[in-house]
Design a protein around this nucleic acid. Sequence first.
RNA 1: GCGAGAGUGGCGGAAUUGGUAGACGCGCUGGUCUUAGGAACCAGUAUCCUAUGAUGUGGGGGUUCGAGUCCCCCCUCUCGCACCA
Length: 851
Amino acid sequence: MDNQYNPKDVEAKWQHIWQEEQPFSASVDSTKEKYYLLEMFPYPSGRIHMGHVRNYAIGDVVARFKRMQGFNVLHPMGWDAFGMPAENAAIEHGIHPAKWTYENIASMRHQLKKIGLSYDWKREFATCDADYYRWEQLVFLKMFEKGLAYKKGSSVNWCEDCQTVLANEQVEDGCCWRCHNQVQSKELDQWFFKITNYADELLDWTDKLSGWPERVLAMQRNWIGKSYGCEIDFQVAGDDEKIKVFTTRPDTLAGVTFMSLAPEHPMVEKLVTAEQSQAVQDFMTTVERQDKADRTSGDLEKIGIFTGSYCLNPFNGEKIPVFLANFVLMGYGTGAVMAVPAHDQRDFEFAKKYDLPIRVVIQPKDVDLVADQLTEAYSDPGFLVNSDQFDGTDNESAKEQIAAFLDNLGVGRKTVNYRLRDWGVSRQRYWGTPIPIIYCDDCGAVPVPEEDLPVVLPTDVELTGEGGSPLARHQQFLQVSCPKCGKTARRESDTFDTFVESSWYFARYTCPDYTDGPLDKKAANYWLPVDQYIGGIEHAVMHLLYARFYTKILRDLGLMDVDEPFTNLLTQGMVCKETQRCPEHGWLYPEQVIDGKCELCQQLVEQGRTEKMSKSKKNVIDPNQLIDQYGADTARLFSLFAAPPEKDLEWNEQGVEGCYRFLNRVWRAVADNKELITDAKVGADISGEAADLRRKTHQTIKKVSEDIDGSFHFNTAIAAVMELVNAIYAFKSAKESPGVLREALEAVVCLLNPFVPHICEELWHAMGHEEGVELSGWPTWDEAALVTEEISLVVQVNGKVRGKISVATAAERQAIEAEALADENVQRFIGAKEVCKIIVVPGRLVNIVVK
RNA sequence: GCGAGAGUGGCGGAAUUGGUAGACGCGCUGGUCUUAGGAACCAGUAUCCUAUGAUGUGGGGGUUCGAGUCCCCCCUCUCGCACCA
């Protein structure tokens, strides 16, 4: 072997071998315990960035570790290939989205292979492959059949100039990102998935996903937003119509002094009287303007307007005014709120502003609330007052009793409300999965017959960014005959939200080549659920919730038998770097700064905050350059060593060099001792320095095993191996005990293999092994080697360290106490004081308590 | 405002059940070897101090023989949600 560590040659060699021999391809084997490891697949933007390197390095550690432990590991990779950037590239550069996407995939695949990740590349697919999305179309048809996919009107951002629908991220300050025209809202008929049917199951399982970070579960619970309450009908005065409200506080019903409706409420037109018509018009204009301007800004002033109508409180028949209020949302509850100013802060502020009555109906025990002296709403528990037969009842039981009372009268009922809305999946875009529906004037929305799938996305389109989706103008695509009646019909031109593809790709990896349906049930049931899923926290709600929902859909369609897709979830932190700025040239790339000066004008560079690596701030490190300079193993090692996976990682060039130095040390440790350790065995009786190194070796095996397994403390695992390497360098009895040295070196190579696989394979073979290091298995520690004859204990006097003693491992308590008391410095601190207690913590310390 | 998490040397970060605070790495200091070194190796590196001594894990209380760790109050920061009726 070479005396010099040369990462380029070593990495090229092993990557070639892995390419040829495919040692990481997995197959169903019911005799072995499976382990499905998955990292969130990337969008093929064209370039790998440091966030990817970190994400995939973390995953690869687990994959290689589990494989060494003997698990049957599935570790696939693919491409989340539909989406807007491909269309934008087409508009800007005239490249077809398909060409752009597949070229990006090819270059990113090449980059990923240079990192040396242990993927089963045979399972790779892109979601824009018709072989993938055809099954998504089939699942959609089944969902349509079961009423889980349905159509309803919904508004989108619309640019009149470009004649196109805009995604939220294409709207900047209420204007179109391309032409800066004011964005309008437009009502379109769109497809929805009935995720609300699964709201309870999705919520209930959040208590059972013990392998997920608590904050992700909290975010999902919050998102689902289940609340228990009551729906109450308020009769409109002088009319048959009723206004339905949802409230979580039926106990405050007697305190209702007005009603607030969302400005978009369907009954508004009917309720507004002639006298109020102009005022309401003005109000509506204000609110519309506000809506756009305030989407990004914070608090909004609470404003409202009287409709001129009244409704009746079903509890006491009181006539109360109906207002429109800007803070009432049509999307939550029923879009109408019974206002109780004494006990709800928003209602309180509103009542104060418009001089509406306030009536206290909940009294706390200790203070006496007086309506016109309140400075804020009282929303804590208490007893009912001003509520007729319910006076004196505590408000918690009053919730039940009043709900029952209303139910009896037929004007109210207990209900459950969710913040979660159904999932809108229609996108007026080209680069996505076509929705397999045909519209017929006579038959309505007709599903494409299964045998006609896939509905293939046509490639002969022109993207201009104007005039809406190219599919909506593509006559050959649009014109079909109705599958039911044969008449001329029109194909759906919308495509799916790309979150649909990412909601089941993990299942398709278990059987990517299956041609008889979306999933090979046997393979899916063997591999799923994913044992460990790894990705960014930014997907905490949308992607992860949709994937959970879709899993339940696939289960209920009988395609597989799992309830939840991901048993354990790891959300890794961002990769950050210090920003640098030139007073004249703005943000600078790291390589533009030479000795703290701007390369363009020699001015002193200002050091900015450490922020997430991003092109716009130019605080980026290109993984390709890094790998060229130091090799993939160094890049991997640094991203695993500098911070625990779930925390943000601060990039530091000197830290990278430190990792490179460490790998050099490891290399030399083997190279320098190669002859000496050939065929060396651990001797029968070893003592002194050799026993110490052997203990260190086995301690390290234990520590690294425990740090990786389950807890992902990669940084401390690597630190432990560094200590072992330091011990190897300090070992002076190599000639006498080459076997102990060999054992230590082999441990280093095995333990490091999941982190830096190229160098480890090379060193493993250099040490004379025929088989690969992965096949050698994960090393196990020998408890006997951990035992020492003597241990060192700390002696404290009143909790402060005053000395150190060395005692036999098996020493009795009495002997330890005596030894501790005999220590000279300890005696000095005891002095004339009385020893009242001696605490002995085995293996740790002795604490002498004196008075 | 609500929810979640965090605050430890010059820096990134370590510290099972409460049990030697600062592992490991970076940086820095000194040394060895070298024509030279930004290579390699060795030693040192929380603060104060003459000290075998005192202080020290955001601040203030408390529990304990003993608190970075447990309890109470407060401060700061990060993330998520935000008029949710």
